[in-house]
Amino acid sequence: PKSSSSTTLTGTTDLDTLLGKDLGALRDIVINANPAQPPLTLLVLHSLLCQRYRVLSTVHVHSSVTNVPPQLLSCLGPRHADSYARQMFQLGFTLIWKDVPKLQMKFSVQNMCPIEGEANVARFLFKLLAPYPSDPALATLVDSWVDTAFFQLVECSAKERAAVLRALNSALGRSPWLVGPEFSLADIACYCCVMQSGLASSAPTNVQRWLKACENLGHFACVVQFLQ
């Protein structure tokens, strides 16, 4: 049995410490995503952010795309009743469906370059929820699984995917979650990519057990809904 502390994300809630001093304007995370590849990981992280912070979520459709399915328009939940009062929120989460070759995040544009790639945006959002492991090897293992999920499970051949499933299975034979005793971004990224690639039914035993354990946390309801 796992303790409940290992499955909830505990971290600092002080955005000033994480992101620097608040200058008065809403901190708005703007994401341009292609409707052909809905960013499931980011939807999961968005719902976790909403449990922690007061988030003003908005979905827009850019003129470069047409016929965006209704489930993509409502993927961040119903429109907030207080959306006119931006000062009531701690974070803005603005998702724009757009014809982009690669997912892109714009945040704090005076200081930061636009961030490309769902993996990197996921790393950023996760750090707003919980710190990475303090051990350098475990922290790097988290990043390495995130890369594996996005670049080998989603993009590669059936043979490479099978190799990743075997690696997942052996890691999950050693510990309940992918990187040691704590639920981490590695679990979120690998869960979403396994589900998105349709590999769940052909997954080996430990992976099956872990998929169930992930679902039991309740963080992935939006993914399951999405893939139906």
Binding site: N120, F124, F151
Partner: peptide, 18 residues
């Protein structure tokens, strides 16, 4: 030096590899 710079570093690591 901070979380935002870490995210930019992640961006360039992927940019170089991909």
């Amino acid at each position: 030096a901070n979380m935002m710079e870490q995210t930019e570093v992640d961006h360039w690591l992927e940019f170089s590899a991909r």
